[in-house]
Write a protein that binds this DNA or RNA. Structure first.
Length: 616
DNA sequence: AACATATTAAACAGTG
DNA sequence: TCACTGTTTAATATGT
């Protein structure tokens, strides 16, 4: 999954699915010939297309749909292409190997006729060893590909030794157990060696558990992923470990080995490499672990496919505009301009955008499940970059009934800061919520209460009396104080923090002081690239933290009108409270995406305004 | 385990 | 009286 980011770079290619099919069939055939004595099974399974592939096939998703369906399909497309590439590589590689082996086998068999049995036995032994070696090489190759993020894993590892695993129950949560279980001596080493060797090739013959038709729930359906789980795959970890900068390694991060279940501390890369070569060499344990990882990835693929399908259905149900261009960075193009004048708009062509757009899908999978509490801090970590996050996934949240991964406080702040005057009435805040998030078009009672609660609770929200009522403003200092950032050195965290502060780029006079104009590049796609970000960042982690702390000192940090301590009387409150201008406006008749389906008795807000501007 | 924070629910008061 | 706004408390969940 973490390969997605990388894969985005070469996503534009076409015809990958065909290549994928061909490649897969090739592998299947090969596999059946190599290791599967029963040709029946192999043929059967060869006909059946693993669900993840089927989901990605053009029959299921038209190009238009692919574009429309926001992120999950995008991920699918990526995975698809990854698979295609990988399979092609493997195809060539394996083909060579097998030709060689077959040749050798033939010669050996011929020789065997003329030789004593013992000699034949020896030769066969040697051959077996070579076969084993080849298989290991194959596996290592796969592993390498996976390390490089090129492989999302093909659905061909399901059989063989993997059956010894809690296969159907593999989910990220199980990882630790899996790693320990698999890597542990519980599985006889020799056995696993034998099997795993055949696994790569032979498993394709019996990928039964993944051969279910697309419409059928995959095996893991009965144990949905925990809500927060997708975060395992979030860019945070990916970006840090995935980018292959010269001084880094995908399996090395934060001073420790990222090999599943390892976490050995390594002071530097050299030490880590040494550790990697010694502890995670190509042995049965490592390969077994690799296998498990493959299966995990595969399960995630299936899960992704499921969620994508669900999303499609949801969007179809909501009558989402099919033609809406949803390339790989979220659409922000037109609509973001109006809602996010912060210049954080990232053109869809941006090759660096991949980092964040990953969130919506992940979130969607999390939130969609959650009738209940599926929010919380998981999002909070990322709540600071809300503006950029929101800008990029603007359309997504607007249209998909997905709970935004931001805290109420973040959202309220965002709503307020988006306005020129940086002040909103309660009702305007409500409206912003409903306007910006499909999710908040429902459950109005709860979240409105929560909004009010947050406004009252947090000191960062300052109520300012007006002639006709009151407006709410944000005391940025308080807001920043509220959550002192813990910069652990994680580039992603730093990036998030910065991008959060980057909102200042938009409200120049006000927040620029806060965020210090040091984040101009936040608007550039480059910042999304962890590698380039780290190199370009003018601020160290400490600086970022400092930008939060030193607030009291800089009088310039707060604009005159918003000087938090006393500005409650200085704020130039709008003369005409919002209700006149935008609020109550029945407005641009922005009916909900599908008014007819808006079953629940929604508040009046709901029908008031909805994403209409963008929908036109 | 303790603590901090977020979410949700609810009670209550003030106001138009 | 009612709806809205705003404050406050409490329970719960989650992350550090």
């Amino acid at each position: 999954m973490h390969s997605i980011v990388k894969a985005l770079q070469w996503v534009k290619g076409a015809g990958a699915s065909e290549a994928l099919q061909v490649a897969r069939q090739f592998l299947l055939q090969q596999a059946s010939g190599l290791s599967s004595p029963g040709s029946n099974d192999s043929k059967q399974s060869a006909v059946q297309v693993p669900v993840s592939v089927a989901m990605m096939s053009p029959q299921m998703l038209t190009p238009q749909q692919m574009q429309q369906i926001l992120s999950p399909p995008q991920l699918q497309a990526l995975l698809q292409q990854q698979q295609a590439l990988m399979l092609q590589q493997l195809q060539e590689y394996y083909k060579k190997q097998q030709e060689q082996l077959h040749l050798q086998l033939l010669t050996q068999q011929q020789a065997g006729k003329q030789q004593p049995k013992e000699a034949l036995g020896n030769k066969q032994l040697a051959f077996q060893q070579q076969l084993l070696q080849m298989q290991q090489l194959q596996q290592q190759h796969l592993l390498n590909l996976q390390r490089q993020g090129l492989v999302s894993l093909q659905p061909s590892q399901a059989s063989g030794p993997l059956q010894t695993l809690p296969q159907a129950a593999v989910c990220p949560t199980d990882l630790p157990q899996l790693w320990k279980g698999e890597g542990a001596p519980g599985q006889p080493a020799e056995d696993s060696v034998k099997q795993e060797g055949l696994d790569l090739t032979g498993s394709a013959t019996t990928a039964t558990s993944f051969a279910a038709p697309p419409k059928v729930s995959p095996p893991l359906s009965h144990h949905t992923l925990p809500n927060g789980q997708p975060t395992v795959l979030t860019p945070r970890r990916d970006s840090s470990s995935h980018e292959e900068t010269p001084g880094s390694h995908p399996l090395y991060g934060h001073g420790e080995c990222k090999w599943p279940g390892c976490e050995t501390l390594c002071e530097d890369l050299g030490q880590f490499i040494k550790h990697l070569n010694t502890e995670h060499a190509l042995d049965d344990r490592s390969t077994a672990q690799c296998r498990v990882q493959m299966q995990v990835v595969q399960q995630l693929e299936i899960q992704l496919a499921k969620e994508s399908e669900r999303l499609q259905a949801m969007m179809a149900h909501l009558h989402m505009r099919p033609s809406e261009p949803k390339p790989f960075s979220q659409p922000v193009t037109v609509s973001a301009a109006d809602s996010f004048p912060d210049g954080l708009v990232h053109p869809p062509t941006s090759a660096a955008a991949p980092v964040t757009p990953l969130r919506p899908p992940g979130l969607s999978s999390a939130s969609l499940h959650s009738g209940g509490p599926a929010r919380r801090r998981s999002s909070d970590k990322f709540c600071s970059p809300i503006s950029s996050e929101l800008a990029q996934n603007h359309e997504f949240y607007k249209n998909a009934d997905v709970r935004p991964p931001f805290t109420y406080a973040s959202l309220i702040r965002q709503a307020i800061l988006e306005t020129p005057d940086r002040q909103l009435t309660l009702n305007e805040i409500y409206n912003w919520f409903t306007r910006m998030f499909a999710y908040f078009r429902r459950n109005t009672a709860t979240w409105k209460n929560a909004v009010r609660h947050n406004l009252s609770l947090h000191k960062c929200f300052v109520r300012v009396e007006n002639v006709k009522g009151a407006v709410w403003t944000v005391d940025e200092r308080e807001y920043q104080k509220r959550r002192p950032p813990k910069m652990t050195g994680s580039p992603t965290l730093v990036k998030n923090m910065i991008s959060g502060l980057s909102y200042g780029a938009l409200n120049a006079s006000y927040q620029a002081a806060l965020a210090e104009s040091s984040f101009p590049l936040l608007n550039s796609p480059g910042m999304l690239n962890p590698g380039s970000a780290s190199s370009l960042l003018p601020l160290s982690h400490d600086d970022v933290g400092a930008s939060v702390e030193p607030l009291p000192s800089n009088g310039s940090s707060s604009p005159p009108r918003l000087s938090p301590p006393q500005y409650s009387h200085q704020v130039q409150v709008k003369e005409e409270p919002a209700e006149a201008e935008e609020d109550r406006r029945p407005g641009p008749a922005l009916g909900p995406p599908n008014p007819s389906t808006a079953g629940p008795p929604e508040d009046r807000d709901l029908e008031e305004e909805l994403p209409g501007e963008e929908l036109s």
